[in-house]
Write a protein that binds this DNA or RNA. Structure first.
Lengths: 352, 352
DNA sequence: CTGAAAGCGCTTACAG
DNA sequence: CTGAAAGCGCTTACAG
C-alpha cells in the first residue's frame, strides 16, 4: 500500500517470506508450483495469501537473470508497421506470446536503413536477452539474415533465408490464386484475365503461378493476351482493365493482382457502362480491410494470413527454444499458410 | 566465436576484464562512459577493442536489475492492432523509444475482455519492470485507468482519464474539421453538408463541433437540414448522400464523417450523374491509407496523427520517468495534436 | 517438508 | 587512475 507520498514500497520475495514466516526458497517453490516439491497445504495457503495481501509482484528481470530465460520474444519488423494489415502480424504474434506467458518486444527497421542498422536492431534485442527472434519482412524476397540472429533461435515471416537454414513462413499465394480461379470457373467463366503487377516482387510470381495452375486444373488453355501488367495501384488496374474490357472478345472476369488494382478495374468497368458483376466479374487479392468491404459491390478477394503467420512464428519459436537442441533447424522447407478466399459480391454466374 | 557445436559461449563483462587485464569496474566505466571517471586513454582503447574482439554483448537484464531501470516501455493497446492505421501508433512509439535507447514491450487487450483482463495485462508489464506504460485505445472515451497503472508512470493515447490525473494525448479533431470546412469555404462553398456518423463515439463530437466552428468562422449560418447521420460505413455515406444530393437546393460540398462514408458518397454522386468534384465536392476524414489515395478522384481528407501520438507518448513518458518526482502528474489538460488536411482532388471551386 | 547459501551479470559507492 | 566487494531479486542444487 502507498505511503503518504504515494510511493509504493516494492515488496520482494523476502518480504513475503518474512511475513509468512518461511524461507524465500519455500515462497519461490509455492508461487512457482515447482514440481517435485512437497510443501504442506497449510504453508502453501499462507504463502499465497500473504503474497496477495502484500501485493507481491515478482520481478521477472531477476528471474530471467537467474534462469537465463527472459521469456521475451523479439519481433524485428522491416518497414512492416507501415504496411496496411501488418498490425495483424504483430497481433497474432502478441496473442500467441501471451498464451505462452511470453512478452513481445518489437523493433522496426526501415527498409532503406541497410544491413548495419538491421544488425544493430537485432543486437539490441539480444542485449535484452530475448529467447528468440522473429524477423518479419513486407515482401518475401530472400534475405540474408543478420548473423546476430544465429546467436538465438529465429524464424522468418514473409521471407526466405538465403542460406536456407532459418525456418520461414509464407502465405500460400499460389493456392489462394488457384482457388480464386476455381471459384470463377465454377461460376462459368472461361475467359479470365489476370491484371498482374508490373513491379517485381515474389508475390507476383505466386499469384501468377496460381492463376495459371487454376486455369490448367480447369482445362482452360493459357492465353497470354489475357495476361496484362500495370502499376499495382488503382491507376494501373484502371488502365489495364480499360484496355481489357474494350476488346470485342473481352474477358468475362478479371483477376486483379491486388485490391487496389481492383478498385481501378471497377472504375474502368463503370466508364464503359459495364455492370459488376453482371457484365463482368472482378476479383482482387489481399482483402485490404477498408477497401474490399467498402467498394460497391463488395469485392470478392483472397485474404493474407497475417495473424496466422504471427502466431505461427511465436509457436514455432517456443518449440525451438524448448527443444534447446544445438541444431535448432531441421527442415529448410518454408511453411505455407493458406490464403482463404473471401466471397463477397463481385462475382456472378457467367451465361455467355 | 562458435565452437564446433555451434554454441556461442556467452562472454560476460568479467571475460572482457580478464582479457584486457583490468577490473570489471573499469570495463563497466569505460563501456558506459560513466561521467566523473578518468581512465587512461590507453586503457579505454584496450577495453573497447577487447570487448569488440570478444563480441561482448552487455546483458541488459542484469543491468536493469542493478540500476532498477529496465529501459523498457510497456505499450498496452486496446483492440488497437486490429484497427487500420493503428500500426502507426506502434511505429511512432517504437521509433521514439529507439531514439532514447528504450525497448517497447507490447500487449494487446481485447475490447470485450473486461477490466480484469486489462489489469492482468498491466501487471504482466509491471512484472517485466517496465519504466512506464502507455495505454492506447481506439476511441477516446473516458476510461478508468487500471489501478496497477498507478504504480508506474503512465500516459494515455486516444482516451481521457476519468480521474483526470494521467496525461493524455488526443487528435485535435475539431480543428482538423474546422480547417477542412475553411478549405471548402475558400473554394467558394457555402452549402456544405455534414454526413455525420450515427454511432456515438467522442470523435463524432469533435468533428461535428469542428464543422460548426468552421461555418461560424466563415459567417455561414448553421442549417440543420444539412446535417445528416448514417452508419459510419460506405453504405451510410451512400444513403445519406443520395438523399442530400437529390434535393433541389443540394449542397455543393459534402463533408463525410470518415473516408469510408466518403466512398459511399462517391457512389451516390455517380448514380445521380454528378461529377466529383465539378458538380459536388466531397471530403472525408481519417486519411485511411488505401482508400483515400485509391478512389477516383483521390479524396481530400484529414489525417489522424497516429505516429505523432505514439511518439508523444514515449517522449512524455521518458520525461516523467526522468523527473522521478513523486507526483508525476501536473497538468490534467489533454494534449491535442493537429490533424493535417491532406489535399487531393475531390474539392473544386464552386461557381454557383 | 523446509532452509542456507551460491550465483545469474551487471553497477556503484568506497577505498586506495 | 584503478579495483575489491556488496547487492539488485530471484532460482536451485544441496543438505538436513
Amino acid at each position: 500500500m502507498p505511503d503518504e507520498d504515494g510511493v509504493v514500497p516494492k515488496v520482494g520475495i523476502r518480504d513475503v517470506a518474512r511475513a509468512a514466516g518461511v524461507s524465500v526458497t519455500t515462497v519461490s517453490h509455492v508461487l512457482n508450483e515447482t514440481p517435485h516439491t512437497r510443501t504442506s497445504e497449510a504453508t502453501r495457503d499462507r504463502v499465497r495469501s500473504v503474497a496477495r495481501d502484500l501485493g507481491y509482484t515478482p520481478n521477472r528481470l531477476a528471474r530471467g537473470l537467474r534462469t537465463r530465460a527472459s521469456d521475451m520474444i523479439g519481433l524485428l519488423t522491416e518497414e512492416i508497421a507501415t504496411t496496411p494489415h501488418a498490425g495483424r502480424i504483430i497481433l497474432g504474434a502478441q496473442e500467441e506470446a501471451s498464451r505462452h506467458n511470453l512478452t513481445l518486444a518489437i523493433i522496426n527497421s526501415h527498409l532503406d536503413a541497410g544491413a548495419d542498422a538491421r544488425r544493430a536492431d537485432a543486437r539490441a534485442l539480444i542485449e535484452r536477452q530475448v529467447d528468440g527472434i522473429i524477423y518479419a519482412t513486407v515482401f518475401h524476397h530472400e534475405v540474408s539474415v543478420p548473423r546476430e540472429l544465429r546467436a538465438v533461435p529465429a524464424v522468418l515471416i514473409g521471407a526466405l533465408d538465403r542460406q536456407g537454414v532459418v525456418p520461414a513462413v509464407l502465405p500460400d499465394e499460389a493456392s489462394g490464386a488457384a482457388d480464386l480461379v476455381a471459384l470463377l470457373v465454377d461460376a462459368g467463366h472461361r475467359r479470365i484475365a489476370f491484371a498482374d503487377s508490373s513491379i517485381e516482387v515474389p508475390a507476383t510470381q505466386g499469384r501468377l503461378v496460381g492463376y495459371l495452375r487454376g486455369l490448367e486444373q480447369a482445362g482452360i488453355p493459357r492465353d497470354d493476351r489475357l495476361i496484362t501488367a500495370g502499376v499495382s495501384e488503382a491507376g494501373g488496374g484502371y488502365t489495364t482493365s480499360l484496355e481489357l474490357l474494350d476488346r470485342v472478345d473481352r474477358p468475362t472476369a478479371i483477376f486483379c493482382y491486388n485490391d487496389r488494382m481492383a478498385m481501378g478495374a471497377y472504375r474502368a468497368a463503370q466508364e464503359l457502362g459495364l455492370r459488376i458483376p453482371d457484365d463482368v466479374s472482378i476479383v482482387g487479392f489481399d482483402d485490404q480491410a477498408p477497401i474490399a468491404a467498402s467498394v460497391h459491390p463488395a469485392l470478392t478477394t483472397v485474404a493474407l494470413p497475417h495473424y496466422e503467420m504471427g502466431a505461427w512464428a511465436v509457436a514455432t519459436l517456443t518449440r525451438l527454444i524448448q527443444s534447446s537442441s544445438t541444431s535448432w533447424y531441421r527442415s529448410t522447407h518454408p511453411t505455407l499458410l493458406p490464403c482463404p478466399v473471401v466471397i463477397r459480391e463481385s462475382v456472378a454466374q457467367n451465361n455467355q
